[in-house]
Amino acid sequence: MNSSMNSLITTVTDSVTTALATTKPLFLWLSGATLGLLVVATLIGAVLAHRVRTPAGHDTVRNLNARIRSWWVMVALFAAAMLLGSVVTLVLFALLSYLALREFITLTPTRRGDHAGLFLSFFVVVPLQYWLVGIGWYGLFSIFIPVYVFMALPSLSVLGADTTDFLTRTAKAQWGVMLAVYCTSHAPALLWLDIPGYELPGALLLLYLMTVAQLSDVFQYVFGKLWGRTRLSPGISPSKTVEGLVGGGLTAVAIGTGLHVITPFTPLQAAGMSLVIVTAGFFGGFVLSAMKRDLGVKDWGTMIEGHGGVLDRLDSVVFSAPLFFHLTRYWFT
């Protein structure tokens, strides 16, 4: 037992050492910068909590501090997964897909005839899709869900001989798998891209995608709260403003351009890629907001304090990850 434990500790230690060595100073620099931003944000939140006087101000600051606390947890989990290697990162994203799919299905009621398809989605499709990503089988992982699973789900449901809302139920199941599993799986797929002349680990490309996508969300929120006046679409997302979208989006693009040093892109190419991530991320969040309004809910879940559910945090990634992955693969591999 002791020898097994020592072997496990040695393996983990070697993985961390190797990850730190191969990422050179860049990963440590980015980790330090992220840690510094979180510390500053925490201090600002603490100061604001003592200074605001109005009930509305208290609600805003309370929401901000809840988001900051959640970011501490999410950044720690993501950094740990990246340091421990590609397999751990893949497992983390598979778990996120499972949880996101559960949130989606929970809010879109199903019938007995759907149970076989749901079992397939959770316990076959999720692990198989991420296994295909992990072995780098691009040809199959890119069509497995949109072709084979899309045909299998209605085929299994129709065996239940329940035609009530059949088209709606089938579309919801397909859409849930598409968003939570297929689109999300393109994020860790970046780890397996083989780009000529790019010697840094693929983990930095994944970090680049997540950083630009999430910072775009953060800065759109900040710009919207500080200077937002023109509501973009109150019926879909009351908090989104034109000023927040433009200011936050441009800021995220500027940061993405500056981070070109961890990518195979030139500064101009990084600016273009960042713009794609920001634009796709915005429409991802907007589309999922429209779905939530249709379902009559504010958030997809309550798992993450201040952020709603897992799908609320992945909404900007589900649209941007496939585009970023395929553009990178097409132009740079």
Rank of each mutant, 00 (worst) to 15 (best):
10 T>A: 15
141 F>G: 05
331 W>E: 12
305 E>C: 02
289 S>A: 15
17 T>V: 14
232 L>G: 02
158 V>E: 08
242 V>G: 04
211 T>V: 07
140 L>Y: 12
114 D>M: 08
114 D>V: 04
55 P>T: 10
42 T>E: 00
45 G>T: 03
122 F>D: 02
97 S>E: 05
108 T>R: 15
310 V>T: 09
85 G>D: 11
19 A>R: 14
238 P>T: 08
64 L>V: 06
62 R>E: 13
58 H>W: 10
135 I>K: 14
51 R>Q: 15
44 I>L: 15
71 W>E: 04
114 D>L: 02
204 L>I: 05
153 L>T: 04
33 A>N: 07
107 L>V: 13
208 Y>G: 10
203 A>P: 04
154 P>G: 07
138 Y>N: 12
308 G>I: 12
108 T>L: 00
233 S>T: 13
262 I>A: 11
20 L>G: 11
163 T>E: 09
285 G>T: 03
78 F>E: 01
92 L>P: 01
80 A>S: 15
51 R>S: 13
119 F>N: 04
57 G>T: 01
90 L>W: 09
325 F>T: 04
251 T>L: 15
176 G>S: 14
210 M>F: 14
74 M>K: 06
267 P>D: 13
3 S>C: 08
172 K>N: 15
318 V>C: 05
251 T>Q: 04
142 S>P: 04
226 L>G: 01
327 L>I: 15
14 D>H: 14
44 I>P: 04
170 T>Y: 00
233 S>P: 02
280 A>I: 00
208 Y>R: 09
320 S>M: 07
194 D>W: 02
165 D>M: 08
90 L>F: 05
110 T>A: 09
114 D>S: 08
196 P>T: 06
287 V>E: 03
206 L>S: 03
178 M>K: 07
83 L>A: 08
23 T>H: 13
120 L>A: 07
209 L>G: 10
101 L>C: 09
201 P>K: 04
74 M>F: 06
182 Y>N: 06
144 F>S: 13
38 L>I: 10
235 G>M: 07
24 K>S: 11
119 F>V: 13
169 R>Q: 04
191 L>Y: 09
